[in-house]
Amino acid sequence: MLTKEIVIKTDKLTKKFGDFIATNEITFEVYKGEIFGFLGANGAGKTTAMKMLIGISKPSYGKAQVAGFDVYKQTEKIKKSIGYMSQKFSLYEDLTIKENIQLFGGIYGLSDKEIELKGTGLINKLNLQNEADKLVSSLPLGWKQKLAFSIAILHDPKIVFLDEPTGGVDPVTRRQFWDMIYEAAHHGITVFVTTHYMDEAEYCDRVSIMVDGVIKALDSPGELKNQHNAKSMEEVFIMLARSAKRGE
């Protein structure tokens, strides 16, 4: 699965807000088709780092390329190549499922035919045939999140960024959600995901753990557990995050 083709590459990427260094010279690479877990305590700088990568926040300094495009100059090209789904549910609640699919399909430049085809496929896969013309607001949270993820990868992006996608979702739905992530990765979509759930960290191919704006560890979950002599990712995380000075 790991073809070692690099899709995200950062070099000392930094974001400062005044004197506060939210993200401090982070350097890492993400390979095509892998599930990259981006962990860290609250306030560690995960979201800031992600925002720079998806082109909605300008870095203070450092270099980064996403899908082969520069985060300073080619943000519009980056935006075409990625999908994004945030913890804050972000489909339009007052539009129906179909209307949301049409809107986001249209925004990413899919043709009417593609929208129709992919939209139907998506609805069938999620078993939402009966709900297709209902408002999104009428769906339970778990379904909404699955729908949001499906719409985020509707345009076959190279990379999909997931910012705590399973927050507030029950364990069964979370499991189903991860099945969808695996499937996407299997189709060659790189998954860049932040999470607070350490069991989810175990599902990732590689994880990085951020503490106080810097990357403290980066490896496969198995390797990290070995290095730290820990039984679970949770232990690894607690060991590393204990040194954190920034509170919540």
Binding site: I54, G55, I56, E76, K79, K80, I82, Y84, S86, K88, F89, S90, L91, Y92, E93, F104, I107, Y108, G109, F161
Partner: peptide, 14 residues
């Protein structure tokens, strides 16, 4: 408020 603007901002909309 609803966060949908963020979703639009990460899209290629000009």
């Amino acid at each position: 408020e609803t966060g949908t603007i963020e979703q639009l901002n990460v899209s290629p909309i000009k």
